[in-house]
Structures are given as structure tokens and as C-alpha cells.
Amino acid sequence: MSNLETILVIIGLFFNFAGCVGLIRFPDIYNRLQASTKCVTLGTALILMAVVIHFGWNSISLKALFCIVFIFLTAPTAAHAISRGSHRAGFSLWEGSVMDRYKEDYPPEARD
């Protein structure tokens, strides 16, 4: 492995680790989603980028590139689905939260 690959893998692991720590430390589901979605997306993308550099121009690299694109497309969508679902299921925000415009506009009682 060259230096660049090692650096990419280490930075990627650092962000993945930050995402996991955020998952434990943050108070409610929405903040936890913030940490896990952002950090794990970039962390995994950087590790896959190291794979692309390591293997050069062949099918493995192209598959890794596709994986990067799909991670960037699907991770935010999944986070949106989970946060929307949990808000609709009645999981309220952490008590230290400042405001909840979504609850004001679409109160739980008004939904089907």
C-alpha cells in the first residue's frame, strides 16, 4: 500500500469512528442520525477511494466507484426515511431542542 492509500484509509476510519461515537453520545434519534449519516458516508467513501487507487484502472475500481455513488445517493435517503418515520411514530425531539416546526405544522393528532 502506498502512503496516499494509507492516509485515505486512516482518515476514513477516523470519520467512521466519529460516527459511531456520535451514535452513542448524542441525545436523540435525529442527532444520532446526523452523526451516523454524515460521518459514515464520507468515511466509507474515503476507504473505497483507497480501494480505487490501490487497484488502478480495472473492474474492481469501477465497482468501488459505483459503490461511492450509490452510498452518496442512498445514505441521505435512508436517513430521511428513518427520521420522517420516527417523527410520525411520535418520537419527540430531545428536551434541549429549540423548536419543532414540523410538529407545529403537522401535529400528530392531525395525521391519519
Binding site: 477516523f14 470519520f15 466519529a18 460516527g19 461515537v21 456520535g22 453520545r25 448524542f26 441525545p27 436523540d28 435525529y30 442527532n31 446526523q34 452523526a35 454524515k38 460521518c39 458516508t41 464520507l42 468515511g43 425531539l93 430531545w94 434541549g96 431542542s97 429549540v98 423548536m99 419543532d100 416546526r101 414540523y102 410538529k103
Partner: peptide, 24 residues
Amino acid sequence: VLKSNLDVAYRVFHPEIPIRPGIV
């Protein structure tokens, strides 16, 4: 994306967790 990751990493590792969350 890079900025947001550094931002989240900072909040995660800060001892007091400096967040002020809400839905806007």
C-alpha cells in the same frame, strides 16, 4: 461534505456536546 464531517466530529468529541437542535 468535508466541512460537515469535521463539524460533526468536533461536536462528537467535544466533552460538553455543543448542540442546539431543532426542526426548522
